[in-house]
């Protein structure tokens, strides 16, 4: 290795420490930015600047009469006393706690099944599971809306066969109905992430394990599940963020459920939307966004602290 970098001047012939190996391998200098730079520039423009702007406007209030004025933390104190906001947070928290584990478990099981190579028609299953992800939310809701219809939908047909009067879109079961749509949409997406991490395991490892007399279940437990841990971390983080930002499904469903079933403060994102676009309260909505971001990050951080650390090694 020829040393050309002033920030790494180490005389030849000295014993290498572990730290040195690390440095040698990865050259600690600025040239990494050449690669990360383009992403960082666009990211700054699309995310960081608007977030800073949102933070800025969250300290103002705009009135139809009286115009705009600086109000300090008024929006934030109002938010903390806002029952509608907290009920929305509570609703997505419950949603996240139930829907995310179910969806990820299904995705992981499906990934294991496909990866086991024990299925007839593996390719078909991989595509079939992933297909819903390709369907736009507007279309998925149209389709599920039909299935859910308690009179003309499939649920309606089941009701007339079974003699029941089950109504999936009643306020009590609505959240579960939405959870089902979200699960349907994203189970294949998560399956693919799990699957791709499983397919990085060299087959020689399975062969070695089989020769050592390991059972199928042991291979899953000892080799496959640990390998999935890394992707589990990221699917959990992205799913939590996704659930806390629930918007598309309930807002499209609004056009088919009873008018009073999905309120404008059903989820924090819907609340922000209504405040901002119907109520002209962009400033208050900005404060809401900042608080939600902090809550989401805190939860994601607590849940996945360790695995994130691992990635940062």
């Amino acid at each position: 290795m020829t040393e050309q970098h002033p920030e790494n001047p180490r005389p030849r012939g000295e014993a290498l420490t572990a730290e040195d190996t690390f440095v040698r391998k990865h050259r600690r200098n600025w040239r990494g930015w050449k690669f990360v730079g383009p992403f960082a520039v666009v990211f700054t423009f699309v995310f960081v600047v608007p977030i800073c702007y949102a933070l800025y406007i969250s300290f103002f209030q705009k009135k139809m009469i009286g115009g705009e004025q600086y109000v300090g933390f008024d929006n934030y104190s109002r938010l903390f006393a806002d029952e509608q906001f907290w009920s929305a947070v509570g609703r997505v928290t419950i949603f996240t706690c139930v829907q995310v584990p179910i969806m990820l478990a299904l995705a992981a099981l499906m990934a294991l099944a496909i990866d086991s190579m024990k299925l007839h028609g593996t390719k078909f299953f991989r595509i079939a599971t992933f297909l819903p992800y390709a369907v736009p939310a507007v279309v998925s809701t149209l389709m599920w809306g039909f299935i859910y219809g308690s009179k003309y939908g499939l649920v309606g047909s089941l009701n007339s066969v079974l003699g029941t009067a089950f109504d999936v879109l009643s306020p009590d079961t609505l959240l579960a109905a939405i959870g089902n749509i979200v699960t349907w949409e994203f189970v294949g997406y998560n399956m693919l992430i799990f699957y791709s991490s499983l397919s990085t395991i060299p087959h020689s490892l399975y062969e070695a394990a089989a020769i050592d007399g390991a059972t199928e279940w042991q291979i899953v437990k000892k080799i496959k599940l640990p390998e999935m841990k890394g992707s589990l971390a990221i699917t959990v983080i992205f799913s939590i963020i996704g659930s806390f930002q629930l918007f598309n499904e309930p807002s499209v469903l609004q056009s088919i459920v009873p008018g009073n079933a999905i309120t404008t403060y059903f989820t924090p994102n819907m609340y922000a939307y209504n405040l901002s676009f119907m109520g002209g309260q962009s400033n208050y909505a900005a404060a809401l966004a900042i608080v939600m971001a902090i809550i989401t990050m805190a939860i994601a951080y607590i849940v996945q602290l360790n695995s994130m650390k691992e990635q940062m090694k």
């Binding site: 990211f43 699309v46 995310f47 608007p50 406007i57 918007f247 909505a285 966004a289 939600m292 990050m297």
Partner: peptide
């Protein structure tokens, strides 16, 4: 910082970012 900033930024509800964006 990059990973932390990216994860942090996508935690901000997109709807509310829409106005500043």
């Amino acid at each position: 910082a990059v990973f932390a900033v990216v994860i942090g930024a996508i935690s901000v509800p997109g709807i509310a970012l829409a106005v500043p964006q």
